[in-house]
């Protein structure tokens, strides 16, 4: 294992665990204000948007088909895994068959 990769993953694990027990630990001493709660709640969804946006903008037809299919499948099936896998399969097919 490369040293920089090992150190990075070691730190990321500590940070992940800090988030897991941080909220539980702090609630013993303080209570969360609703606004902070709203901020923390919005964080992962904003991050998801930030990752998907450039993929859509920099992608071509296969990526657009994939994203549209993921949203569509999610509306129809309501199942995250079926939707994601279905979208990936469509992207692979589009890349193979579209000019």
């Amino acid at each position: 294992m490369r040293a920089d990769v090992f150190v990075a993953i070691a730190i990321l694990g500590v940070l992940s665990y800090a988030c897991r027990f941080g909220g539980f630990f702090l609630m013993r001493y303080v209570s969360m204000t609703p606004r902070v709660e709203a901020w923390l709640r919005a964080m992962p969804i904003a991050l998801v948007g930030a990752i998907v946006g450039p993929v859509a903008v920099n992608g071509g037809a296969p990526e657009w088909i994939g994203l549209a299919a993921a949203i569509g499948l999610m509306r129809v099936t309501g199942n995250e895994f079926v939707s994601a896998i279905g979208a990936v399969v469509l992207v692979a097919l589009a890349r193979a068959f579209l000019p």
Partner: peptide, 25 residues
Amino acid sequence: PKTFGVDFMLAAFFITMAAAFVRRL
């Protein structure tokens, strides 16, 4: 990974995750 769309998996999982998050929010 490009042939099988593996590089697209992250976007696919995240867009469906977004749909789930938005429903709750």
